[in-house]
Nucleic acid binder design. Sequence first.
DNA 1: ACCATTCCTGACGATCCGTCAAAAAATGAG
DNA 2: CTCATTTTTTGACGGATCGTCAGGAATGGT
Lengths: 245, 245
Amino acid sequence: MKQLSPKQKEIRDRESALLDSAQDMLLSRGYLGLTMDRLADAIGVSKGTVYQHFSNKEDVLAAIAVRSADTRAALFERAGSFRGRSRERMAAVGTAAELFFALYPHHEQAERTVRASTIADKISPKRARNMESCTFRCFGVATGIVRDAIASGDLTLRDGQTVEQLCVGLWNLYTGAFLMRELENFIDEPVVNDPMPTLMANAQVFLDGFQWKPLSGDHDYSATRERILREVFPEEARAAGIDAH
Amino acid sequence: MKQLSPKQKEIRDRESALLDSAQDMLLSRGYLGLTMDRLADAIGVSKGTVYQHFSNKEDVLAAIAVRSADTRAALFERAGSFRGRSRERMAAVGTAAELFFALYPHHEQAERTVRASTIADKISPKRARNMESCTFRCFGVATGIVRDAIASGDLTLRDGQTVEQLCVGLWNLYTGAFLMRELENFIDEPVVNDPMPTLMANAQVFLDGFQWKPLSGDHDYSATRERILREVFPEEARAAGIDAH
DNA sequence: ACCATTCCTGACGATCCGTCAAAAAATGAG
DNA sequence: CTCATTTTTTGACGGATCGTCAGGAATGGT
């Protein structure tokens, strides 16, 4: 299985080239601008060949989304390995989300288009499962950190609060902010100029609301952020144009 | 101008019927299932006539989104008139968002589809402006309440925190949760079973993080919620199947 | 060199969008 | 009521795209 014939290798490479092209088209021309004919032309192959890789147009989007979702899960897992107090580790996850957002700006659009309910059933079950597993990996990292926080005494949940609730809240805060950035692309006067600092500040407020120690007033989280960027994501930070000062 | 000839009235009514049909199709069959031919057939009219109401398919979506966005803004404004302490009034806005979400489940999809960047420029400028103004009305209610809270001493912003940041945070929390509900339609094992209680709990945590008095631990907000449903949204609560106990 | 299998091609039917010239209906003046 | 003018409606049409499939080309093993 490890041994790939030249032909098999060619096919594998082509799939990745197809995804690259499709991703560019999606980003620059949007869903309607991404067509199967153009995609075939872009890498000099006939349309029938494209359909050997993807069962239909929605499947192309799904494949794009799965690829970047996998990258995101990997970033989250690296973030989870950051050495520090529990809340610092969660901050690392936040930084991972931020970097992912900057580096893979197409992802949100791809994932949302894919998941628009009536399109979902046109996607191969295998890809749908892959997608799910990436989400679970991300949530797994987050819930693990929350549980560690509880075990170490940094966090005590009040009556009725759950680990999942906290993670879902953070997730919502981030996806909501990402959605907003995209929507504001075409608004004349955006509500906030740069959504990222606002998002990070709000995440801190949210965790303060859970009384997750050390509170944002008792600890220099901007120093933590710099350490995260330096120690865990030096490459990505540079690629994203975020300097750790 | 007030006097409408029978013909003009017929045209006006037809537009609303078209939007009703389009909305149903969007909800039941999705973006791809909503076609101009079907739309024309649905109300027994030719396609050309449909194109006298809307300049293209995306414009139909925009019109759907504007109509429900207007309804949402109206709900927010009613919520803002709730009598109570500042944070209770913000809770009323949250309830408005929740009711809107339950009563107009198509809206999120319509708005997102419309705003997918490459589609945006196909929409008539007038409708785009309408859309914006609805968003501003919603934010206006929220920022007004926050300012009142600061004036009354219920809320004191820390260094660097702004009124807009708080409102954007709440907005993100809600839109993120709404997005999640939609995405989980086709996931086998959702992360949270009923996202709404989780969302409301997280909104409370977020406001606690800002130290907005009275904190959720010092006040019975479920009683406030019941009062809001009873006093401000009795009709809507019944329509949405939410009983105030 | 030969053949079986796998892969590629591009023309084709089907669908949908948006247009437009012609037909139908409404309006209003005499 | 009549009829000319304006407004509205119609549906066939051109263009674009999706997804298919029969036939042709390439591959790999013997």
